[in-house]
């Protein structure tokens, strides 16, 4: 079989609400900004949301399932981003049944996109470990596992890592999906106080190094309110941390930022302020 040149990245987590869609949107924007032709696909059939985070919700005409069923071709269904001409969104179907996606259907859509000369295809996985999540990860070359420094999220991430190592095309061919851990909603202050797992704790428990650490920050909500992925807010710490993470995905060696408490003066230290 002909090998497509597009790198397929799945953004997954197991647990819901940890920041998968925020991360998918930001990684896709970051890759596009770095000059890579990028498509980002919403695999959450029935619970479409990526369009909203990307700010293109009013321009969805055809969706993922339309392409799978041959009701539209990939060129018709890819929504061109208004900020980057090399960035495209494929929305999930809001009305269809989850069973509308099949392995063959997904493979066809990914191939159609790759044939359009894309460099990266980012797959935004639904929560859970059912069919949608399985299909989102199946064809991946790389997985960005989004994890919060919190017990249930860490446990679910380990479950997902197990599935990546066994239920993917790469695994079936005796290869490995490249696994990257992305720690989100991180609060150095709470880590220092001893009420949040540290980066080292999470890395140690999951046996994997982080590719990025996104600090808990109000700009993440503001960005989703506005439909502008937070990576485009280059003043915010979260946006800068996403830019760094994308740089690392592209192979750059960038040190972590915003992962330690900003030091206070002598008096506030003395009085524990």
């Amino acid at each position: 079989m002909e090998k497509s040149l597009a790198e397929i990245i799945v953004v997954t987590s197991g647990k819901g609400g940890v920041g998968k869609t925020t991360t998918s949107a930001s990684i896709a924007c970051g890759l596009a900004k770095a000059g890579k032709k990028t498509a980002v696909i919403d695999f959450d059939v029935g619970l479409r949301n990526l369009d909203l985070i990307m700010g293109c919700e009013r321009r969805v005409v055809y969706d993922f399932v339309n392409v799978v069923l041959g009701e539209a071709n990939i060129k018709q269904a890819l929504i061109k981003d208004k900020r980057f001409e090399n960035l495209f969104v494929l929305a999930a179907s809001q009305t269809r049944d989850k069973d509308a996606l099949t392995k063959e259907g997904v493979e066809k859509v990914l191939k159609d996109i790759a044939d359009e000369g894309f460099d990266y295809i980012v797959c935004d996985s639904p929560a859970g470990i059912e069919k949608g999540a399985f299909l989102a990860m199946y064809f991946a070359d790389r997985a960005v596992v989004v994890v919060n420094p919190e017990v249930s999220s860490v446990r679910d991430s380990d479950r997902i890592l197990g599935l990546l190592a066994s239920k993917t095309r790469k695994a079936e061919n005796g290869e490995r999906v490249q696994e990257n851990l992305l720690l989100t909603r991180y609060s150095p202050e709470r880590v220092e106080k001893g009420d949040m797992l540290s980066i080292a704790d999470v890395e140690d428990i999951l046996g994997l190094k982080v590719i990025g650490v996104i600090p808990e920050s109000p700009e993440v909500l503001q960005s989703s309110n506005a439909g502008v992925p937070v990576i485009l807010d280059d003043v915010s710490h979260a946006g800068q941390a996403y830019t760094d993470a994308v740089g690392r995905i592209l192979g750059q060696d960038i040190p972590l930022r915003y992962t330690t408490v900003e030091r206070k003066g002598f008096f506030s230290k003395l009085f524990g302020g």
């Binding site: 380990d158 001893g194 704790d201």
Partner: peptide
Amino acid sequence: ASTARDRLRILI
């Protein structure tokens, strides 16, 4: 946090 870490280590 250290309680969380210890519980997760055993469970995982």
